[in-house]
Each structure stands twice: as C-alpha cells, then as structure tokens.
Nucleic acid binder design. Structure first.
Lengths: 168, 168
DNA sequence: CTTGATTCCATTGACGCCCAAGATATCCCA
DNA sequence: TGGGATATCTTGGGCGTCAATGGAATCAAG
C-alpha cells in the first residue's frame, strides 16, 4: 500500500526516541524521501508528517498564491518556516524537537494517524477528543449529503458513509 | 459473482483469528486487494470491510474536498485515521484489532453481512437487533411509499436488508 | 576531556506462516 | 435414489520472523 492509513500509539524512550510504525515506514520508503518531513499543524495541536508527497502538496498550495503576496508569505512562514526534517535511525525511530513536542503537547506517548498522503502525530488523549469531534462532524456531513442526494448523483457518497442502510 | 451477499457467522479462535466466509473471500480475490480494508462504522456499532471498491469510494469522497479544509481533515481523521488494513493469512483468516473489536462489541463470535460492494462485521446479537429494527423500518417505509408515491432512493435500503433473498 | 548524539546490539512479545484435523457439503456412481 | 468418496471450509496449534523497546558502545564536537 502506498498511503498512510490506520493509527498506532508508541512510547518515547528515555532518550526521547520513538519508532515510526512499520507500515508508515514502508510508505515512506516507497515515497523515497530521506528522513521525515514534519511541521506543526496549522490549526490543530498536532504534527503533520510525511515525505515527498507532503512536500509536493505544500508547494502546490503555495503556488496557488501569488508570489510576494502577504498570504503567501504568511503561509510560507507557517509551513516551511517551522518545518523540520528529522533523521530516522537504523531502527526506524525519530526524535521530535522540543518545539514540536510543545506544539502537540507530547510527553511520553504519541499516536500516529494516517491521512493518506501524510500522517499526523498526536498526544493520545488529545487525539481521542479530536476523533470524537471528527466523527460527530462527519455524521453531520453525511446527513446533508444524504438529503441532497435526491437530485441524482451524490447518493453514492451518502452510501459510503452509512454503514447500515437505515443508520439504525 | 462480484458482490458481497448473504450473511455468515463464524467464531474467533484462541488467538483472535476468524475466517472470512469463503464466498466473501472469492469476491475479494476478484477485487484484487491485498488484505482486508476495515473501518469502524460511523453510526452503527459495526465494521465496514472490503477491498479496492470500498477504498475507491472513500478516496473519491475525500477528493471532493480541498486539502487543508476543515471538513477534509475531519473526514480523513474519521475514515483513514481509523481504518486498518488487515492481513489475511493463508487460510483466509483475519485478526481484528482491539479498537475494532471494542467498537463493534465483538468478543468470540462475529457475523459477516454482505452489502454489495462492501460487507459489515457485527457482533451476532447486535446484528439480530439491528436487523429487526431495519425490517420494522422498511415496513414503515413501504406504507409511506405506497401512499405518497416514490421519491426515488430508499429502495436501495430494502435491497441491502434482505441478505439471502435478493442479490444471490 | 566531557557531553551529546548516533549507531549497534539484545530482549521481549506479537504476528505471520506452516501444517494438521474435524466437519460439512458436493458429486459421482452403482 | 442411496451411499460412499472427495473436495472445501472452518478451526486448532506450533514455530519462525519481525517490530518495538531498552541499553550499551562508538563517534563527534565543544
């Protein structure tokens, strides 16, 4: 597989090292990026991490803004300016900087969360809360999709989100 | 036969392994996906499982949202973040993670329920209850349909609720 | 020389893979 | 049509491999 999926929780050892989940390492290896590209989440207390795919997305996003524009400068500062390229040791472990750990509230345990082309790093407790909210929001979203489905096509989307036909 | 139909109940062994029903395995093999893609149902205490067909549906849904949008993040968190790609052993068995089992209330027995392009995994008792309610609702729906005329879509629901009868 | 960082090595436990057997349904043939 | 042989499927268990983790050793830099 070439996408980050699922979530894993690992512990930091006394030196602050933590193993990148093996499935994620496999994706990174396939991606061909040396090391791990990481930046603090823009709005969430989490870290965004990945390889070339993530970099490409960030660049694409910046490209959409005119050069020298204020927005682009801000975005560039927030994304590129705070990014770090972490080294991965032979066992597949990385060490997050204090700045990164502070941003995500990480202490001795972290949860890696797959997001397709990238993955996030959360403090486990915070992730649980975030997941609860995400589920609630998606349920809302699904309802709306189901309603608009009467016009003909979006019905498929609604289908994918409704486990049981009735939702009961 | 390229769709998941009917339902089967199997037992977990002492290692937590359970056989995917042979007919479902055949569909998966035809689908060409390595392993089994699984994610917790958003509303129901059940698991959604499948192969490329299910994955494609989820990806298509995500594609409709712009990167870095809040909606996409939530959707990605709820779907990709909680999905797992389970390995299927040579005998056609899988092992559900604790998180998945907890979500569906699975202990030592599971019921696989065909839903066309995907299938669900339920704790047998809960499925019975779900089926009862689904049937009741369909009866309700039929009455209203007969009265007010067709609005178009709910028919699908009826199909997915009669495992053995229709699709086979 | 001291301190921090990186690499190497060892342990533990989980997971995947192999082989085996019981049970059931299917098919063939008398 | 009945009986037996056969194939398939589910379930059970043993074993090897790999991943996560902890600690020691080596290297670099101040």
């Amino acid at each position: 597989m070439d996408r980050f999926v699922s979530n894993f929780t690992n512990r930091l050892d006394s030196k602050g090292r933590v193993s990148i989940p093996a499935p994620f390492r496999a994706v990174l290896a396939r991606d061909g990026f040396e090391g791990l590209y990481v930046h603090p989440g823009l709005d969430a207390p989490a870290l965004d991490a990945g390889g070339n795919a993530l970099l490409a997305e960030i660049n694409a996003l910046l490209e959409t803004l005119s050069p020298y524009s204020e927005e682009r400068d801000f975005l560039s500062t927030a994304l590129l300016g705070t990014s770090e390229i972490l080294k991965v040791d032979p066992e597949g472990r990385v060490t997050f900087s204090d700045a990164l750990k502070a941003h995500a509230g990480i202490t001795d345990t972290v949860t890696f969360v797959g997001h397709g082309h990238k993955f996030q790093v959360w403090e486990p407790e915070r992730f649980r809360a975030h997941l609860d909210e995400a589920r609630a929001r998606v349920r809302e979203l699904k309802k709306n999709l189901g309603r608009s489905g009467a016009n003909g096509s979006p019905v498929r989307s609604a289908t994918s989100l409704s486990p049981g036909a009735s939702g009961a």
